[in-house]
Amino acid sequence: MRLRDLCFSYGDREVLRGVSLDVPRGKLVAIMGGSGSGKTTLMRLIGGQLQAQSGELTVCGRNLHGIGREELYTLRRRMSLLFQFGALFTDMSVFDNVAFLMREHTDLPESIIRDLVLMKLQAVGLRGTAAMMPKQLSGGMARRVALARAIALDPQLMMYDEPFTGLDPISLGVIGQLIRRLNDALGASSIVVTHDVQESLELVDYIYFLSEGKVVAQGTPEEIRASKDPWVHQFVWGESDGPVPFHYPAVPYEEALLGD
């Protein structure tokens, strides 16, 4: 998958201003950046939910620009997006959630679907929850079920939208390990959108830093750790002030207080 000079804006608000990045086959790539830096938008562009105004976006050898609905759906069968909060179907049991794609897209008999679903649930360690409803699961478990659902049809491109947000350290570690293991087992390309630096540095093969709609830094985890770039330094070590200012742009403080 490759992106070249991708630009996108919601009305007047420019979100992406010329982003270029590559995700080679079998690699786990992280896209990092502060909140509002355009990470989620990027993900939606890759998934084809939004169309870029300019630039080139190729997924599995297909240019996504001006793609038709039919073609997009065919392409989407080969990719999978893990939503931030899992987005499990609340009106179905865990089993039916994982079986959903198999029932929609294949004509497999129910007995095979059952075996496959149990296999996927086993992979995320939640075979025991098959009969439960999503509302009975904790946040971390729901995300693991969503992961099992996402890999149901062995996608070639996995995308994770902030998979670590709002998890306790143990669940976080579990999800992280799962992402790594699944990527290697499926031989798929994976993109993790996150702002959890330490966890990602452990996991991924390559990192892109996104800020204000541009790639500001990139490199392997070792390169990033050693980076002297002030921006990367601030992000990695979580300093409150630096190239990314603490204050949202505003009129000078004194003026705001004294002026009328």
Partner: peptide, 10 residues
């Protein structure tokens, strides 16, 4: 986001 998720699953 269940509808979005479904849409993403083709």
């Amino acid at each position: 986001e269940q509808l979005d998720a479904m849409d993403m699953m083709a």
